[in-house]
Each structure stands twice: as structure tokens, then as C-alpha cells.
Design a protein around this nucleic acid. Sequence first.
RNA 1: GCCCAGGUAGUAUAGUUCGGUCUAGUAUGUACGGCUGUCGCCCGUAGGACCCGGGUCCGAAUCCCGGCCUGGGCGCCA
Length: 439
Amino acid sequence: MNLDSIGDWTRTHYTSQVTPELDSQEVTLFGWVQDVRDLGGIRFIILQDREGTIQLTIPKKRVLPEVLTKSDLLQKRFSFGVKGNVKKTTMTSRGIEVIPAAIKIFNVATEQLPIDITGKTPALIEARLDARPLDLTQEQSLATFKVQHTALEAIRSFLFKKDFLEVHTPRIIASATEGGAELFSVDYFGQKAYLAQSPQLYKEELTLSFERVFEVGPFFRAEESHTRRHLSEFTSIDIEAAFANATDVMALLEQVINHVCTVVKEKCANELTLLKHNLEVPTIPFKRLTYDQVLEDLKQHDVTIPWGEDIPTEAFRVLGEIYPYFYFITDWPTHAKAFYIKPREDKPEVSEGFDLMHSYIELVSGGTRISQKEQLIQRLQEKGLNPESFKCHLQAYDYGMPPHAGWGMGLERLTMILTDNKNIREVTLYPRDRVRLTP
RNA sequence: GCCCAGGUAGUAUAGUUCGGUCUAGUAUGUACGGCUGUCGCCCGUAGGACCCGGGUCCGAAUCCCGGCCUGGGCGCCA
């Protein structure tokens, strides 16, 4: 087939911008064939672009012969352009259609697509991820990532207003930052290095200079997790603030969540409708449960956890039934939290760490940090970590480390909540998990 | 790392219990033909599959063993 060059054509409108008010005006549209319905004497072609779809109507006896010839060739997913006249009509749900005056075909697509993109026989997640570039053209995928984009935009602008600087810390590091979690190792010019699992230590150090910082970026966990809420590579939204404690950053966090939900609900109304999700904007303040209250609630539901133990997923699921929306869990036992979380001064066995939960999923983890060097060293030792390997980090505490607090939020988990997706891979463009490294 | 479930056309599924007209059914997609108002268009025709290897048996999609692959759960966490 002879393909056309784009030549001097320029898009005048996205499909979503074509309205009945443009009746009888000429528009130039670019996009892809989503579907062709040929009734014999009349043919309907659905043009899709990133903003939506529009119907092209071709009455075969009343269009130019070259338009008819070109439209004969069009198949699903061909990329093409059309110049045509907008026509107001009651025959389409959008109240408009476009009668082509010229068609340019830019590229073809394989006849048999690897997944059904019409929604009639939806493919399973595995087949969809194998054909991810194609899968992402589906309206639900587009809607999901538009929500994510909008959420991120809302978070950034909110944090900018609250005086936070956006920073970028290293992804390649010399040693484990938090102990615990497994790290991916990389060869760094013959030296052993690792992919960062979190910006934790760097962002804390930066409170010494920039006071209030945030970072959005990918982090890596070499845990062989096999669930619908874990990825080997995920995007973290991290903040850290000097001269603040857990209470301060929790207040900030609930404002962030409230703001994001408000903005997404307003700007992505169409996307949420498409995703059949009625997003509720949570009211501030969020419910705050102490660890002790959680244990008590669980006991009421015949789940007994000894004080000091971490809460297993099974118990979180029960808790998620009781509190189906956003809620904080505070006052965690110190030894259940990371070494950098500050123990309460009046009750050292309890920490100033907190989690923000949404149903049974942990969305955010944060807390007041330890800012005294001696205490940090002591906590490292209690955790079985060698202070010597944290030498570089510990030096920051020699230069007037301010009291500080912060949190880290999983962007994909947030997107799951905002779009009501049950699988984290749905909200990740190219997910990386235990068994998937491609595409 | 541990546990459970499952691999049937491009996609999604029926059939596996209890082996036998299963010559493997259906939907959708694809190809071809027909149709002037569709919007999950419709009608007709065609082509398209039992994960791999071994075993039991007169006979295996079905039962057994091994392998590979996938989904889900746990632990861990964002």
C-alpha cells in the first residue's frame, strides 16, 4: 500500500474539541481507526485520538471517489488523517459527525491484533501486558493514566505552594539505605553498587540545607513479592520537612490527598465515568487510630495480635472491612518501625511513626525522624545494622541536623485508589515484577 | 522463599468430574461476499486451538509422572 506523507496538514482539533457549534466548518483530525462499520451504501469509521473518538460518515455515492478509495483501505489501528466538514446530527451520541473531503493514510497495522480492543472480548492482564503498546490505546488505559497525570500535577503544584523544593537523589548507591529489603545489585565500573530502594537518607540530609524537599521517582525492591499491590520498580512520592514532626506532616498529607481527590474529580470527570468509579473526596481530618486501638478493633473481630507484632495482611483485610476509606495508624511499636523513626520521648517503646491506610492497603508510611546522632547510632545497633556502613549519612548529624519529619507515598497505589483498579499492573505503563521484565 | 489454582484458535471461554460420535462446541476477531444511518450493526461463507515430554490404555484435551509457563495468596513493603 502507498502510504501518505503528512505534508502540510496540521491538526486543527482533537476529537473532543469538535462540537455541534462547529457545524459545517472544516476540521483536520489525526488519529487511528478504532472501528469500521460498513453497511453497504454507507460506511462509518470511528477515529480515535488520545482525547476520545469521533465518527466519520462516508455515504459512498456522495463522497469524492478518492475518499471512497482511501476509506476502503482503512483497517483497525491504521494511523490516518482526515480533512472534512463537521455536520450536526441527531444520529450520533455526540451530536456530530465528520464528512471526509480528504483522507491520508500514514501507517498500517496487522490484520489480527493480539488483543481485542473493542471491549467485546476483553483480554486477561497477561495478554494485555504482552501487547502493552496496543493495550495502552484502549480508552480505559488512557483514562487511568490521565488520572495519574492529573494527580501528579495536583500533588506537585500543592507542594510547591507549601514551599517544598523538588529534588533528585541518586538511584545508584553504594550500600543498603535501610537494611531489610532486598536490593538489586549493579556493576559500577567494577565496583558493587545497588539500585536505591528509597530516597530516605538523602532526603533527610537535604532538610539540613533546603529544609523542605520532595521527590517523585522510581525505586527498586528485589523482593519476590507476588501480589496485586507490589512492583519491583515503583514510583515513590517522598517529602521531608525540617522543623516539623509527624503531626505536621500528617496534616500536610491529608491535605494533599484531599486536594488530589478534589482536582481529579473535577478535571477527570469523563475519565472517572469511563472507569465507572465514583471517587469520594475524603473529609479532613482523616480518622486516626493508634496501634493499640487497631489491636482492640481486631480483637473484636476475633483476630488477636500480640502487642509489638507487625500487623499481617490478613488482619489488615479485616481492618479494611471496618474502615473502608482513608485512615491513619499511629503510635506503632518502635521496634516494628525502621531505625530512623523517632521513639516517643515520654514512652520510648512507642514511636512517632505512622501509616496512611486505604482499606487494607498501606498507601503512605512516615513519621518523625531521629535527629540526634547518638540516638540514631543506638537504633542502628538495635536493628542489627553496622553504624560504620552509615558513616556518610551520619556525618550530616554533625552539622546541625534539624528536627524533621516526612513520608513516602506509592504513586501506583494512589492511582489504584483514584481509578478503582484492583491490580497495580493496570496503573503502571510497563510493570516490572518477579516474572516480568518485558516489554 | 513458601502455599494454592490453572495452561484448549488472535482474544475470551465450553468440554476434564466418571477416558469413547470431540470429526473439540460457542462468542468475538480475521478473510471473502451481501446490505444507505450504524454506534457491541446485521446476514452468509471460510480458515483457525487441546503448553512440552514421557507413561497407562484397544482408545487420552480428559488419568498418572516430570518439566516449562502463568495467575493468585502469604511473607516483605509504597
